[in-house]
């Protein structure tokens, strides 16, 4: 409750400062909150904003889910066969710090333009946190669980799916959380390359049409959706931690 109140106060303060600052400048260069919110509602009314959001969310969901699944599957594999990981680890460590944006020229060459570049960039941004947290999690599974698996004569596959995966899930979910953040950040960049729709396209489009009010409306939308996504995954993460009986993370 207190937190919500402080948040509201901060928001009102920001809007006030923004409005005051906007009064000083030409609204073509820097529109105030009133104008932006009005244009924002207009964009919703004519349906274009909803369309952009839908497109962006769909691309994001595909890139993120593919990254999450392949990150978890490969992470389980490399976490289990640690020796193999020692071969791939240096390669991944070199690839990981490369911003997905650096790949754009290749992505366009290989995949053309349209939906795919955005999806690929979201994938690249989300994949590494999931992969690395999964590998670390599998390595940290309590030995007692493996003994229990042996004890009840579980097969290797059962041990992986019934013991190792759930045992490492809390830590994997931390990677999934991190990935949703970075993935969303790179959505805009992905949609700036030759897309004809989506929030990233809306930004380019606003620039081309000299509509700073749209631009800010798009930026606000990206921020708000990012916040909601983060809250959603935080909530899921918390449920996982509660169910797993771990209390050391996220209690508020």
């Amino acid at each position: 409750m207190k937190k919500t109140l402080s948040g509201a106060v901060g928001l009102i303060a920001l809007l006030t400062i923004w409005q005051l600052a906007a009064l000083k400048y030409n609204s073509v260069l820097f529109p105030g909150p009133y104008e932006v919110i009005k244009s924002w509602l207009d964009l919703f009314k004519d349906g274009s904003m909803t369309e952009h959001i839908k497109t962006s969310m769909l691309r994001f969901a595909i890139g993120y889910i593919v990254a999450a699944i392949s990150g978890i599957v490969l992470g389980m594999f490399f976490g289990w066969f640690k020796k193999l990981w020692n071969f791939f680890n240096p390669v991944i460590q070199v690839m990981r710090p490369i911003s997905p944006i650096a790949w754009i020229p290749f992505i366009v060459l290989w995949f053309g333009i349209g939906d795919i570049p955005a999806v690929v960039i979201i994938f690249l941004a989300s994949f590494y946190p999931v992969l690395l947290s999964t590998i670390a999690a599998v390595g940290r599974v309590d030995k007692i669980y493996l003994k229990v698996a042996q004890n009840f004569a579980l097969t290797r596959f059962e041990t992986l799916t019934k013991i190792v995966l759930p045992a490492s899930f809390p830590q994997i979910s931390t990677g999934l959380h991190q990935a949703i953040g970075t993935g969303w950040v790179f959505l805009v960049a992905g949609e700036m390359i030759g897309s004809q729709s989506g929030l990233g396209f809306l930004i380019i489009d606003s620039r081309n049409n000299l509509r700073p009010d749209w631009l800010l409306a798009a930026i606000l939308t990206i921020g708000i959706i990012g916040l909601l996504l983060d809250e959603l995954i935080k909530w899921i993460e918390k449920q996982i931690y509660i169910k797993w009986g771990a209390t050391e993370k996220h209690e508020g």
Partner: peptide
Amino acid sequence: PSARNTTLFQNYGLLPWRTVQSNVELGLES
């Protein structure tokens, strides 16, 4: 280790993500 014998570990070795019931069923599932 053989499925014909079972070991009770000092720290129980229960799986925290499973209910009491499905913990008890672990060895039966296969």
